Simulated assay, not measured.
Amino acid sequence: MSRSPHRTQPARQGHAVLPANQWHTIRIPLRGNNIQVFIDGTKVGEATESAYARGRTGIGTGWNRVRFDDFSVTPG
């Protein structure tokens, strides 16, 4: 998520260690100004940020190699 089209500025940052070589489910519901993050059904983060009520979204992985399958963005 970014406030500017030229620069990425995260709403919040976090860190999660996930077992390698297996698939994980990530869900990020955005409702109004509330952002939640779930990994494998467990809530791992939440933020309230009115600047991100609409716009682009993204997932950062640092310098790690990852694969995404069945990635989608749907209206809430």
Rank of each mutant, 00 (worst) to 15 (best):
R27N: 11
P75A: 04
S2D: 13
H24Y: 04
R56L: 08
T61L: 10
K43I: 00
Q36F: 15
G45F: 01
A51W: 15
M1R: 05
V66R: 05
D69F: 06
G62R: 14
G62W: 08
T61V: 08
R27K: 11
Q13Y: 12
G41S: 11
I59K: 07
P19T: 13
W23Q: 01
Q22S: 04
A53M: 08
K43C: 02
R3E: 02
H15E: 12
P5C: 05
G45T: 00
R67C: 11
Y52N: 07
R54L: 07
S72H: 10
H6R: 12
P10M: 07
V44K: 02
R27P: 01
T61A: 14
V37P: 00
V44I: 13
G41P: 02
F38Y: 15
V66N: 03
A47I: 01
D40Q: 05
G76Y: 05
G58K: 08
G14V: 07
V37F: 05
P29G: 12
R3N: 11
I59E: 04
G58D: 06
V73W: 00
R65Y: 04
E46R: 09
H15I: 03
R31A: 09
F38W: 15
R67G: 01
G41C: 06
A11I: 10
I26R: 12
R65F: 07
Q9G: 09
H15C: 11
G55F: 03
N21A: 15
R54F: 11
F68M: 06
G41V: 03
G32Q: 14
G55A: 01
G60F: 11
A11M: 10
I26T: 01
G62Q: 12
V37G: 02
W23N: 01
H24V: 10
W23E: 13
G41A: 01
G41L: 03
G14A: 11
I26H: 11
I26D: 01
M1T: 11
P19S: 12
R27W: 02
Q13W: 03
V66H: 14
T74W: 12
I28L: 10
G60C: 09
N21C: 07
G76S: 04
G14W: 15
R67D: 04
F68V: 08
T42F: 09
I39Y: 13
G60K: 05
D70W: 15
W23G: 05
R12D: 02
G60A: 08
I39G: 00
T8P: 00
D40M: 03
N34D: 13
V73N: 06
D40R: 12
V44N: 06
A47E: 07
P5M: 03
G60P: 02
H15V: 11
F38A: 02
P75H: 01
I28P: 00
R31W: 11
D70Y: 06
L18R: 09
P75K: 05
S4I: 02
N33K: 15
P29V: 06
F71E: 01
V37E: 03
P10S: 02
R7S: 08
V73L: 08
G55I: 03
S72N: 07
